[in-house]
Design a protein around this nucleic acid. Structure first.
Lengths: 213, 213
DNA sequence: AAAATTTAAATTGTATACATTTTATGATGT
DNA sequence: ACATCATAAAATGTATACAATTTAAATTTT
């Protein structure tokens, strides 16, 4: 299961969708993509199907696949689910936490702090890396995969609220608090911080989307 | 996006996996499946990739895709997530509920009651139909899709606890209670019933799996 | 002119053939 | 006997070619 071209197309398309470089709501044509990326339609189809399975594309009748329009309801649902699900992994995280992993996580935060003018995409990626490195020590693959999937679905929306300089600063503050609570093996507090962290981001994003239809 | 053969293979494979008719943990060979179903490898690959995206198959290194072994931790995580997520849709369900949908849902329960000796597969399907018809009126596609995906991932595990005759009776009782609470537009009670309904099933299943390694 | 039917173009699905990669086998050397 | 490397076999990834389906256009009919 090592699709080289298929994977390349998959990555490229996902990147284009994240950057809003592709038209929303119109069906993608396999032929056009085949020409654009200079590969046959087989790897194109592989990439499209995978993107569909992950929610980056949705079918539009029998006409093909399209990039779904951004939707306040979707963002609201995704963040509200994350608020409930992500804290569920923290007991296992705290149970198995090591100093090495705490260090790795802190490194990600420092990288975000030091690079003042980070692109929206890079910031989102580093943000996920921070959370992921903590979640991974839990060794609960199902919980982790579910959380990871939710994060992926949120990716198209991040950037609408991370553009505010204010958000970035506050978000980092919450990250450090979370890290401290986990280091102290304080489950209740870490869960409360994470809940608030996700909930706040979700509310800001949802408000923005509702006011910019 | 209308794969006729691919879809047929997908359905058949999923059915075989659900019925535990296929060996677990060994990589599937595209060639063998191509011979078995008398179609080329292209639709086979489509089906495999879709099944992988939905968690019915997982990669085993670069050797291909295999049916993942059943795992108590996975069942535990899935049900605990469902306990938190599924009640989230009930406010919207109650808000938009109609008598017609209530009737449809009740029909499904009656079908389960009347057919005394229902196969595990059919019972699971009808059970989901009951929940789905209620959830659908909420018109929250993201929440619904997430719930649906979680249900799908649970499907391989159902049957381990639905074989007990006792469970079926109790489950139906809870279904009728849930329906009544929704009919009365009683949000708190309906959420409590649903939470308990899922939580109980999850515990029974997890206990069974932990005792039968 | 509007609706319905037919025809042509475009698009997707599938099969076959080939290329590439991976895995297994066996030879070689120490 | 064990490890290492070379070779062959198997399996997957990709391209091209063809078939079936769907969409659009054109024609006919009322």
């Amino acid at each position: 299961m090592n699709k080289q071209l298929g994977n390349k197309v998959y990555q490229q398309l996902k990147c284009d969708i994240r950057n809003h470089d592709l038209p929303v709501g119109v069906p993608l044509k396999q032929q056009a993509l085949s020409d654009k990326y200079a590969v046959s339609r087989i790897p194109i189809r592989d990439a499209l199907q995978q993107l569909k399975a992950e929610g980056w594309l949705v079918s539009v009748g029998k006409r093909g696949l399209m990039i779904p329009p951004l939707c306040a309801d979707e963002a609201e649902d995704l963040y509200r689910i994350r608020v409930e699900v992500e804290p569920m992994i923290l007991p296992y995280v705290i149970e198995s936490m090591t100093n090495q992993v705490l260090g790795e996580a802190e490194d990600f935060l420092n990288i975000i702090d030091s690079n003042q003018s980070l692109g929206v995409l890079e910031h989102g990626e580093l943000n996920w890396q921070f959370h992921a490195v903590l979640y991974k020590v839990a060794k609960r693959s199902t919980l982790f995969n579910t959380i990871s999937s939710l994060h992926q679905q949120c990716e198209r929306y991040i950037g609408f609220h991370t553009r505010n300089l204010g958000y970035k600063v506050q978000s980092q503050e919450e990250h450090y608090h979370l890290l401290t609570a986990i280091r102290n093996r304080n489950l209740r507090e870490s869960q409360a911080i994470l809940k608030a962290h996700i909930g706040k981001a979700g509310e800001q994003l949802t408000d923005y989307l509702k006011n910019n239809p």
